[in-house]
């Protein structure tokens, strides 16, 4: 990774922790295990933690468990080489024992790529269902477990009604079984329920986060999500192609905010509670494309694939619970998120 990429991420970590001194103090000298630890969520938490280790001597030891641990050095060489990070190559389904020093767990294993859901729904569901069972069972043996955060998904709500501006945690919609993403969402619902069962029956200190959509460094631009494709199209000189008329509404959180929110929910979230994690500010895909084009030096053309009548959808969380009870807010708005994502990817490809 280039020096400029590192500088951008360090600036992001500095910004998100500025004005919030000591808010992650409870992690001091603790050992944190992250399953799916080399994925997007795990990598960003590792960036934030190591930044605090370096700048505030937080002294956190990180265990990143992943079946792709061997690839981490290519993705984030500076993180992979650190002594405060230990990489563990293992499929989460085969996790039978966790080292007793672990005091916090973030269980983030699971593949949100809907290409995988369509191609291999069995594996998608097994990793989530069996993996969560393995983590929870192993967590029972930990003598000093202080908190376990399960990373679920905003998809557990099913289709958001168009007339509902934001999805609150209390929303009880149903998942459409005909959707190719249903296997992922249903498995996540099951995993949430399993977490709750372990909380009730075995008193595990579990909180749950339901992430929505993100854009920022480390997000792979070949993932089949609209904003990723727009940025990739833009970086290649365009045009940016939009499926439909662009009226579909999404919201995007920058990953430094995501990492900070998740750590705060792990430390301060009420046991047994689910928190939406994302941006509450909806924006149409047409406007997202316009902003990306605006912030690009190449000013790519925007094309609409409107061969069919558009089926607009909305996927925006209500994050007032996290804001009201934990004081969480966004430090990076959508314009800044797009600009920094473009900068990071340009620096990465330089």
């Amino acid at each position: 990774m280039t020096t400029r990429c590192r500088e951008l991420i360090q600036e992001d970590c500095r910004l998100v922790t500025t004005g919030q001194p000591g808010s992650l103090e409870a992690l001091r000298h603790r050992t944190l295990l992250i399953t799916g630890g080399t994925g997007f969520v795990g990598t960003w938490i590792a960036e934030l933690i190591t930044f605090l280790n370096d700048t505030q001597n937080l002294g956190v030891r990180l265990l990143l468990l992943s079946s792709h641990a061997n690839d981490f050095a290519a993705k984030a060489p500076e993180l992979a080489a650190r002594t405060d990070i230990q990489l563990i190559k293992r499929d989460v389904r085969g996790l039978f024992e966790i080292t007793p020093e672990v005091e916090y767990i973030i269980h983030a294993a699971g593949n949100p790529d809907h290409r995988m859901h369509a191609t291999d729904p069995i594996s998608t569901m097994n990793v989530i269902a069996q993996g969560t069972g393995a983590v929870l069972q192993a967590a029972l043996t930990l003598p000093n477990l202080r908190g376990l955060l399960y990373i679920s998904s905003g998809l557990v709500y099913g289709q958001q009604p168009w007339e509902l501006a934001q999805l609150p945690e209390s929303y009880t919609g149903a998942i459409a079984h005909s959707s190719s993403s249903a296997c992922y969402a249903e498995a996540k619902r099951f995993a949430e329920m399993l977490c709750d069962a372990y909380r009730r029956q075995s008193r595990l200190p579990i909180v749950i986060a339901r992430p929505f959509a993100f854009i920022g460094p480390y997000q792979l631009l070949d993932r089949p999500w609209a904003i990723n494709n727009f940025i990739r199209d833009c970086l290649m000189g365009g045009p940016i192609r939009i499926l439909g008329d662009g009226s579909t509404v999404r919201s995007y959180m920058y990953p430094s905010d995501m990492a900070y929110w998740l750590l705060r929910i792990l430390l301060d979230g009420a046991i047994g509670t689910c928190y939406n994690v994302g941006s509450p500010h909806g924006i149409s895909l047409a406007k997202v494309a316009e902003r990306i084009a605006l912030y690009s030096q190449k000013r790519p053309e925007i094309l609409f694939n409107q061969a069919r009548e558009s089926q607009s959808s909305r996927f925006v969380p209500d994050t007032s619970l996290a804001s009201r009870t934990l004081g969480l807010h966004l430090t990076v708005d959508i314009d800044t998120a797009i600009q920094r994502t473009l900068l990071w990817n340009q620096a990465r490809n330089a």
């Binding site: 290409r115 859901h117 369509a118 191609t119 190719s180 089949p224 499926l243 694939n305 061969a307």
Partner: peptide, 11 residues
């Protein structure tokens, strides 16, 4: 066809 859509096919 849903698989192809999920892979990024535009039709």
């Amino acid at each position: 066809a849903l698989k192809m859509e999920s892979y990024g096919a535009e039709g």
